[in-house]
Design a binder for these strands. Structure first.
Lengths: 331, 331
DNA sequence: CTGAAAGCGCTTACAG
DNA sequence: CTGAAAGCGCTTACAG
């Protein structure tokens, strides 16, 4: 590997000058600049990122914290992030927090040690109090999940309104008994799941439907979780006629199990999901769902991070992207 | 951030000694070692990876080249890799080559610049001649796709036998007209897809069934690709009675479209997939498929890379993991 | 506009 | 067993 010294030697100039053309420093004469560039070309010189990093300079990697990469919503998000990052010369590290606060902190710690230059949090499990110290060590952006009560930029959809719209759709279809599945837990006071449940309650209240706590299912994430929900639903004496799931995987699980148990969708129980993952199109009947603009979300987050790395001012903190109610056959 | 000098100062010892305890160098007295450790603790010292990297030493990141992360087979592979890597203190970078040879080389180039310490290639698009120069710059391991005619370690399943078993299953069910979908292209002389087609031809030959080139579909990867295949299949005057797809996504696409067009599976056309992705269980009828041990594959690859980074000898080049024929309802 | 020198945080001969 | 010093490949005051 050629080093900066080799380039300096070959071009007959100093390392300083070479470094200057490397970093687009203004005051270098055209002739010297060309000499240097020619030498770099000839030696197929690539500056050592480790050395540059150590000097606290240019950086080229972004960490993305997800709950789990095998959830299609997250893999599509990572896909969008990786593609735009690549175009900008950045590499992407995948961090699976798997709902473990310790793991999340361990990943954030990589910001301290300059292993990554910035972090996109698409999942968040710690409290803001435990998170905020890391903001001193590099840019952090929320994308998907978030803590409103923070000073970080947020890329998100309007959770309140999206869920409100979904529940309204169910109500418009004549449903009064509506079950609700969330990936979150009880007692969240901030963030995505909290906003969603506000949307849920708003729609119910508006239609003067009392909420039945027995029909609320927390910590529901996977297809298998959905199957369990379906079993519970069916065993109830007072059974809901519709169920809203916070993710298409859970919705799919419910759908599969309900059909297996001999009931019809949507006639006996209507089901709607969230995200609009490929699976929504595959189910029979096809899932009604709320489409998230996953590519735009990922791209916006990359844009923000790179902007912050270049010390651009963040004009606005909140970046809200539009969702869309996709009505198919399950409602 | 505390540096090695801070630790040296606080412990009253030299940087050399601190560095030695950091790297488990043998000849340090217990007392001094404890002094150093106490100082490190007190300062919550974390060695700078950039600096260590620059000295050509300990490294902590592994790149994984995949075709595209949104393919569930790859996201499960990355999941397994990330988890084991995390346990060993390594970070994982996701590189999507997206079938682009240039991108693949750009990623491999990160090995040269020490941005990653090793690379797991789960996808490979370049020829060995263009790849081999990179082997000088750090460990590379094939996992999933591979080039047999190379000197790199390979983690793989027995492609020949797996496909052979699949096709045999179809033949045993009475099928003689069998279509074949592969993600590869024609004229591949080495690697996964070549081995698969050997398995395909072996099974046919053994049953004395001539191969019909019209029933071979190349470059088939996504659900949408599968739908197209189904349309073509159905429009044929001499139509196959069974189709083998090299991935569950393609198989799912075929299944969906065939049903939509009013034919029955497996009565009119039997379908089998490959991988055993979650989607296989979701389809109706459920997909018969070949299960790949995706977790084991990812873990084995990490194990090999870390071993190589620690300069352990690679005893064997080939690591073959078992597959399983999972018979469900689509055949 | 250009360069010599110091320094980033480590490791590694070399010497004792 | 331990340490002073050189060096990894860069950047950045400082000086001219």
């Amino acid at each position: 590997m050629a080093t900066i010294s080799d380039v300096a030697k070959l071009s007959g100039l100093s390392k300083t000058t070479v470094s200057r053309v490397l970093n687009d420093y203004p005051h270098v004469t055209k002739e010297k600049r060309l000499l240097v560039q020619k030498a770099m070309e000839e030696l197929s010189y690539i500056p050592s990122p480790s050395a540059r990093r150590m000097r606290g300079q240019i950086t080229t990697s972004i960490g993305v914290i997800v709950h789990r990469i095998v959830n299609p919503f997250f893999s599509y998000l990572v896909n969008a992030i990786e593609e735009l990052a690549y175009e900008n010369g950045y590499q992407v590290l995948v961090f699976q927090s798997n709902n473990d606060p310790e793991k999340e902190l361990a990943y954030l710690n990589l910001l301290k040690t300059k292993q990554v230059d910035g972090i996109i949090m698409t999942a968040v499990v710690n409290e803001w109090d435990d998170l905020k110290e890391y903001t001193n060590f590099g840019p952090i952006v929320f994308c998907n999940e978030y803590i409103s009560d923070s000073n970080l930029p947020i890329v998100r959809i309007d959770q309140v309104d999206s869920v409100y719209t979904g529940i309204r759709h169910l109500i418009d279809r004549g449903h009064q008994k509506i079950a609700y599945c969330t990936g979150g837990s009880l007692f969240e006071m901030d963030g995505k799941n909290n906003d969603r449940s506000i949307g849920f309650q708003k729609a119910l209240k508006e239609a003067q439907i009392p909420m039945n706590p027995k029909w609320v299912f927390i910590n529901q994430i996977t297809i298998d979780d959905g199957k369990e929900v379906a079993k519970e639903l069916i065993s109830m004496s007072d059974r809901p006629t519709a169920v809203f799931a916070g993710g298409d995987e859970v919705a799919a699980g419910i759908l599969i199990e309900i059909k297996r148990l001999g009931l019809r969708v949507p006639e006996d129980i209507a089901i709607m999901g969230f995200d609009d993952q490929p699976i929504a199109e595959i189910m029979e009947p096809k899932l009604t769902t709320i489409r998230q603009p996953v590519n735009q979300m990922g791209e916006k987050a990359v844009e923000l991070i790179i902007g912050m790395l270049n010390h651009a001012d963040q004009k606005s903190k909140d970046h809200e992207l539009p969702t869309e109610l996709v009505i198919r056959q399950s409602t």
